[in-house]
Simulated assay, not measured.
Amino acid sequence: MRATLVQVGLRGLSTAQVRQVRPVRFGRAGGDVARVYRELERDFGVLAPPVALHAPAPDVLAAAWMTLRETLLVPGRAPRAVKEAVSTAVSEGNACPFCVTMHSSVLNDLVGGRGGAERDPPARAAADWARANASPDTAAAHPVPFPADQAAEVVGTAVVLHYLNRMVNLFLGELPLPPGAPAASMVVVRRVLVHLIKSAERRGPRPGASLDLLPDAPLPDDLRWAEGSPSVAGAFARGAAAVERAGRRSVPDEVRELVSAHLARWDGRPLGVSRAWVEEAVGELPSRHRATARLALLTALASYQVDQGVVDGFRAVSPADRALIDVTSWASMAAARRIGGWVRTG
């Protein structure tokens, strides 16, 4: 598919939104990065910054793209409005205003006006389910509002958004606008983006078309909820394996063990505004690992609290852009998988 003039014009604006790492611009992308960028325009409608921000680590970029594509974008058994309602509810819970703006805009268009999920009973029920399943305590008692054959898509959408919300909070601003753009321009930008996204959906992205970006891998036990859809299962198996490799590449063993231990005890609830718990946790590690552990723990459990000082501290010991993507993507995926493991599907 040849890109439209509008898509071409938005390329620079999309990558200009990426902060903390040097963005890979469309015209300079090569190999798998270039392929993912082309597929984003074809199947998402626009070079979406939440995916493009991963470009310094091409394998992680492929993982983020294929898991989002196969759950939210590929037409399947679950209605798009249901998946957008889940995306909006998860993003609200994770305090990710960028994602709330985008997914609520698409949802409002799908249901015919403002009010989002409130205007569509299945979407409203799915949003309530997503909110309840943010914690195992509230998940257990909440009814599952979708049939079993939609579980892979709906749960997958929730898990992908739990992952992307964390990355977006670190690497993008509060609105899908380039730096310096007035907030008032969001009215026009929202209209254009929704049009492009809906146009891409009408073209009907083909299931599994991006899976060959990464090698085949077995589906981990905590992702068994994906088994009902071969393409969703394939995307998560390959994507999870790629992110695990990124973790081994850039996250010391001691840090991975610390984050995994905290996630095993986590019940999904916010940890509060104080970061004293982080300092206590990283104090257990050798000083050379503390900056990485601080970044990974905050990304996994309170991404909205990652500030410039945390990033600068990590950069002092690991200056490469790829390392920053590796650590944050590994921590984000670990948290998202933890949540997916307790989500109720039946």
Rank of each mutant, 00 (worst) to 15 (best):
S14K: 00
A16S: 10
V21H: 04
R25N: 08
R28S: 14
D32F: 02
R35C: 00
V36W: 04
E41G: 05
D43N: 11
P49N: 08
P50Q: 14
V51A: 08
H54P: 01
A55D: 08
P56G: 02
P58A: 15
V60T: 13
A62R: 13
M66I: 15
L68R: 14
V90A: 02
E92Y: 15
A95F: 11
A95N: 13
C96F: 07
P97H: 06
F98M: 00
V100F: 10
H103A: 03
S104T: 15
S104H: 15
N108H: 07
R114I: 07
G115V: 13
D120N: 11
W129D: 06
H142W: 09
P143R: 02
P143K: 02
V144D: 02
P145Y: 05
D149I: 05
D149V: 06
G156K: 13
V160E: 14
L172F: 07
P176L: 00
P176H: 00
L177C: 15
L177S: 14
G180H: 10
S185Y: 10
S185V: 14
S185Q: 09
K198E: 13
K198Y: 03
S199R: 13
A200N: 09
A209M: 09
L214F: 05
A217L: 09
P218M: 15
P220S: 14
D221Y: 02
S229P: 00
S229T: 01
S229K: 01
P230S: 12
A235P: 00
A237I: 09
A241Y: 03
R245G: 07
R245D: 12
A246M: 06
G247T: 03
S250T: 15
V255N: 09
V259T: 06
W266Y: 13
W266D: 02
G268T: 05
G272S: 09
V273I: 12
R275N: 12
E279V: 06
E284P: 00
E284F: 03
L285W: 07
H289M: 09
H289W: 11
R290I: 11
A293D: 00
L301T: 08
A302P: 07
G309I: 04
P319R: 14
A320L: 12
D321P: 01
D321K: 02
R322Q: 15
A323R: 12
D326T: 12
T328Q: 09
M333G: 06
W342T: 06
V343Q: 07
